[in-house]
């Protein structure tokens, strides 16, 4: 098989790689905020339960979580395995990444000086207005570098979908590598991820720059 054919074949899986990536970003970013708020809840039970789930999600391999979400329903309830594996894959990725984002958000929220809340309260901002207008924009700026880190990792982590044979780019590459006994597909995959992350880096850098208008 020529290099060109390999690239073309693997490119066909690139759409699915992008689907995992964008859907995970789309779901995990807001979900992470919900998890962070639950984690910081004044209700001790809510916060303890959330904390427990975060330790599970961060303390076990993503690969295991992928397998659990994809095949768990079959082994547990005898339910069928999802025909479109994108669904369990995106669910597993979103939940896993939400746990990481939640901790990043929490760190960001807790780093905002209490004086910001007090000033807003005295000026008559409601709790919701204070969070949305005063706290959140400052949090976003502070956490951008950490979020970029996670997103760069996510690009590479999409390759883990091969464990449930979802036909994304890396899974195809791995199959070609096996059938052709060639290392070439892995190199191609490496270049794909690298270029993908160059773009991510550029975009995130631009967002960070846009937030640079104050200290």
């Amino acid at each position: 098989m020529s290099l060109m054919t390999m690239i073309v074949k693997m490119s066909e899986g690139l759409g699915k790689t992008c689907a995992i990536f964008f859907l995970t970003v789309l779901f995990s970013l807001p979900l992470g905020m919900i998890v962070a708020l639950l984690r910081m809840s004044k209700n001790k039970i809510v916060s303890a339960v959330t904390r427990f789930f975060i330790t599970i999600l961060r303390g076990t391999p993503l690969m295991l979580q992928l397998l659990a979400v994809t095949y768990g329903p079959y082994y547990l309830f005898g339910a069928g395995v999802a025909r479109n594996k994108l669904i369990p894959v995106v669910i597993a990725f979103s939940i896993n990444y939400a746990a990481y984002f939640a901790e990043i958000y929490r760190g960001g929220i807790e780093s905002i000086p209490v004086g910001q809340y007090e000033a807003a309260t005295v000026l008559g901002y409601s709790k919701f207005q204070t969070f949305m207008r005063i706290i959140l924009p400052q949090v976003v700026k502070r956490i951008m570098p950490s979020v970029t880190n996670e997103i760069v990792t996510l690009v590479k982590d999409t390759s883990m979908a091969f464990t449930v044979s979802y036909q994304e780019m890396f899974t195809i590459g791995k199959q070609i590598a096996n059938s052709q006994t060639s290392f070439m597909p892995f190199l191609v995959a490496g270049v794909f991820y690298y270029v993908f992350n160059l773009i991510v880096d550029r975009v995130m850098g631009r967002i960070e720059k846009r937030l640079d208008y104050y200290q």
Binding site: P113, G115, Q116, E118, A119, A120, I134, P137, Q138, K141, Y214, Q215
Partner: peptide, 9 residues
């Protein structure tokens, strides 16, 4: 406030 507590953004 002593520390102004202006909104930096």
């Amino acid at each position: 406030f002593q520390n102004f507590n202006l909104f930096p953004h």
